[in-house]
């Protein structure tokens, strides 16, 4: 079974982003970029499926600017066998990405696509579900446990109020939640080996996909700032303030 893992290059999760003064977006020039954390979990899971014998090949795919190659190399260092970059400088929104991935799925015919549940830049949480819809495949989002058996996969999902388990017939789309696994550290020898693994580059035009953005960003602003708080010396003062000043208890 082939597994396809889409990965996204995003601003590193430790970076506190700044909104540009002209309100056109956030400043990502000279900011550290990394693989989206949920996608790392997806690559790790696909790699574990391969190590357990459930998968035969893991293909990483990324859509975006040329530098996304670095993100794909990281996926190859974790354990993906080969990679595809769909290269474009156009701003890609989830629907466009889902269409690009679908075009690659049609070509590669994987049985399973594992994505992160959301990217930490646009926080959309859409691409996996959209891909499943376009392919007409079943979906299991927010997965915390995946078990493949024969032509079906059993997935435990994190939902409001607890967990639920679904059984999907393959092929299927799964999106990862944080507790699915702990991604391994990439080692230097594996980084070196990853440089030799194949990386194919395509364009949206070659795949025949219109990636024009559907949603226009009119402006990006700072969230409303909170008024500066005060430090209280002891519990008694805290209770007094909450009762008489904030009036919340």
């Amino acid at each position: 079974m082939k597994v396809l893992v889409p990965v996204k290059r995003v601003v590193d999760y430790n970076v506190k982003v700044r909104v540009k003064s002209d309100q056109t977006g956030v400043d990502i020039a000279n900011v550290k970029m990394s693989m989206n954390p949920f996608d790392e979990i997806a690559v790790e899971e696909a790699t574990r499926l391969k190590e357990s014998g459930a998968a035969t090949e893991v293909i990483a795919i990324s859509c975006g600017v040329a530098q996304s190659q670095e993100t794909l190399r990281t996926a190859l260092a974790i354990g993906a066998d080969r990679a595809t970059l769909v290269q474009t400088d156009v701003e890609l929104q989830p629907l466009a990405v889902a269409k690009l991935i679908k075009a690659v799925v049609d070509k590669e015919q994987p049985q399973l696509v594992i994505l992160g549940k959301q990217a930490i830049d646009d926080d959309a949480n859409q691409t996996g579900q959209m891909l499943a819809a376009l392919l007409d495949w079943p979906q299991a989002t927010f997965a915390s446990k995946i078990e493949v058996s024969g032509d079906s996969v059993s997935v435990t999902r994190e939902v409001d109020g607890g967990l639920e388990t679904l059984k999907l017939s393959l092929p299927a789309v799964i999106t990862t939640d944080l507790r699915l696994n702990e991604p391994r550290y990439v080692t230097l020898p594996n980084i070196m080996k990853a440089k030799k693994k194949p990386l194919e580059t395509l364009t949206p035009e070659e795949l025949g996909i219109d990636v024009a953005p559907r949603i226009k960003t009119l402006k990006v602003t700072e969230p409303p700032a909170r008024a500066a708080g005060i430090m209280v010396p002891d519990v008694a003062t805290l209770v007094e303030k909450l009762k008489n000043e904030a009036k919340v208890i």
Binding site: V17, D121, D122, D123, I215, V220, T221
Partner: peptide, 16 residues
Amino acid sequence: RPIYAGNAVATVQSSD
């Protein structure tokens, strides 16, 4: 809508 973990707020327009 919020983006970047709520560190920015985007005003967005849909033409769909």
